[in-house]
Amino acid sequence: MKILAIESSCDETSAAVIEDGCRQLSNVVASQIKSHKRFGGVVPEIASRHHVEFITLVIEEALQRAQCTLKEIDAVAVTEGPGLVGALLIGVSAAKAIAYAAGLPLIPVNHIAGHIYAANLNDTLEFPLLALVVSGGHTELVYMKESGSYEIIGETRDDAVGEAYDKIGRVIGVPYPGGKHIDEMAHHGKDRYNFPRAMIKEDHYDFSFSGLKSAFINKVHNAQQRDEVLDSNDLAASFQAAAVDVLIDKTIRAAKEYPVKQVVLAGGVAANSALRNELAKAVEHELPNVRLIVPPLSLTGDNAAMIGAAAYIAYTRGERAELDLNAKPGLSL
């Protein structure tokens, strides 16, 4: 079964053709990073405008690369939320138009579920599992008892971890999006500033990154006032160590409490090398019977292939949307 999937929840316009939920026949992404770099972050109105410019182009390209026509497609899937409402509306409007004009079923997909099911494209998810979803908009620990069932057992109470990276990136003076640059700088620095590991001792699985962000900004500002020069690489390393420590500590604890077979790392921040490496070590040492699944770098950011992978599960569960489908910016799992 072939699904044409569409994703436009933030600043990438993407379309993909996925076969049986696991084979990626194509995955085309039009990334707006260069555009939003000009403003130091995603500007929603500009993101929406770019989506309209590219939506039919990426869909056509996805079909061409998959070497198939709409006639061979069995269903259309689209991200209905969460995300930026104006951005989501472009994918939703396009998906409804194709589903209607081509007479195909329409499958609504949750963006977070998409990030988790991205792992199904290169590996096989086994349940129950625990997923750590980390991106510019999300920081969530999701327990999945079985395929298609989601329980959020922990989430950020303020900033998403990727958002914190971008914000301190601006303070250090690296281009948007900051995460990649901070990650690189961290390799050349030392964890010297002992930033707070928020909520690490508390027995719930929620996160908080705004305190870490503030501690970082204060450190930089205080040093500036004293004309003291701090090593940027050390700052990056200290921030990264604090952020990664909390993410890993809570993930490992949750994986011990819940009877999981796998831990899945998902979302844009899953591209972070420290997080990938440290989590791999921690799982190996502390969870001998648990397998860690880390998606390939190409599937960590927002893309439609992951939406197609999640849509297949939704489809087999009978989930369908009608022509009145709307964007749901605050949709939860």
Binding site: V52, T56, E60, L70, K96, I98
Partner: peptide, 15 residues
């Protein structure tokens, strides 16, 4: 405008 434009161009493309 975007809802109309996206719906229109995608309908026209599909058909």
């Amino acid at each position: 405008l975007r809802i109309a434009a996206t719906t229109a161009k995608t309908l026209a493309w599909t058909l």
